[in-house]
C-alpha cells in the first residue's frame, strides 16, 4: 500500500472516531438514563433475577425515544 492510501485511511478513521463519539453521546446518552431508571426500579423491587422471565425492551440504539 502506498503512503497516499494510508493517509486517506487514517484521515477517514480519525473523522469516523470523532463523529462516532458525537453520535454515541446523542443516541446513547438520553436512552441510557431511562434504562438506568428501569434497572434501579427492578433492583428496588427485587426483581433483578439471574435469568429474566420477560424479554427486555431493546430498541435499536439509534432510536432516541
Amino acid at each position: 500500500m502506498s503512503d497516499g492510501v494510508w493517509r486517506v485511511l487514517w484521515i477517514v478513521i480519525l473523522g469516523a472516531g470523532l463523529l462516532g463519539m458525537a453520535g454515541l453521546l446523542l443516541s446513547v446518552g438520553f436512552g441510557s438514563v431511562r434504562e438506568l431508571r428501569q434497572s434501579l426500579d427492578e433492583l428496588r423491587a427485587g426483581s433483578g433475577c439471574d435469568e429474566p422471565v420477560d424479554e427486555p425492551v431493546d430498541e435499536p440504539v439509534d432510536g432516541t425515544n
Partner: peptide, 13 residues
C-alpha cells in the same frame, strides 16, 4: 452484576 438488569444503551454507556 447489578442483578443482571442492564439493557443495551446503559451497558454501552
Amino acid at each position: 452484576v447489578a442483578g443482571r438488569t442492564l439493557r443495551i444503551r446503559l451497558a454501552l454507556a
